[in-house]
Design a protein around this nucleic acid. Structure first.
Lengths: 109, 109
DNA sequence: TTGATATATGAGCATATATTCATATGTATT
DNA sequence: AATACATATGAATATATGCTCATATATCAA
């Protein structure tokens, strides 16, 4: 990424900052929903089909599918078709890392 | 916090998880807005008055004040009245840490 | 006291978003 | 081919949220 800034606090003084703040906000928005967090928690260690995800959570198949599309478009999950099932797993280790860290933060409060 | 879970992925199997996912989502929501991120970036190193914040950003005094109230209620910023000015600074090192780390994640993409 | 300045706040508005419902698409089974 | 099953998707709805505008409150200056 074409940014010279090295710290968050420095960002506010840079010309490129507007786009960066938007990007950061978009990133956090992904994690700002309980259903998506639950889906990501399920996919944290396992690969699961849409139906299995919907079954584990108390969420309709449609709602899960809508959220998965969102996560797919953002390259946060990957999918693999197998027959009529579609299996999803995490595509992004950054997200994995952020989730783990933030979770620890919340625990230590 | 009264949770036995040690990892994010484990959380999905716990009885306490519903509340925890809501809490995590609420935490991320705070950071899911560019204006709030900019305010937090400004307060990352400095203490500033409401007027100074509004001046640095291109946001109205009212909008800044509304967001500061939100951050105040969540104990993310502290404030100190001094005459007619009110000076704000960061109250929470967790937030500082998460911001810095996430920023680094985005940079390294 | 009067006027100016700094901040806070409620109401209203516009927009975004999560879900549901109905249905489309694709695949397996008979 | 017909039916059942798994997933995707568009439209509609309900709710949340960020901002503006008007105004309230508090403090300083004259």
């Amino acid at each position: 990424m074409l940014v010279t800034t090295e710290s968050f606090s420095q960002l506010i003084h840079e010309a490129t900052s507007e786009a960066m703040f938007l990007t950061m906000a978009e990133s956090f928005k992904i994690l700002a929903d309980p259903t998506r967090l639950k889906i990501l928690a399920l996919l944290f260690t396992e690969t699961l089909s849409v139906g299995e995800i919907a079954e584990h959570l108390v969420v309709s198949q449609s709602a899960v599918s809508h959220q998965l599309r969102l996560l797919r478009n953002l390259n946060i999950v990957r999918y693999r078709k197998q027959g009529r099932e579609v299996y999803y797993d995490l595509a992004d280790d950054h997200v994995r890392d952020i989730l783990q860290r933030t979770f620890e933060h919340i625990l230590h409060d």
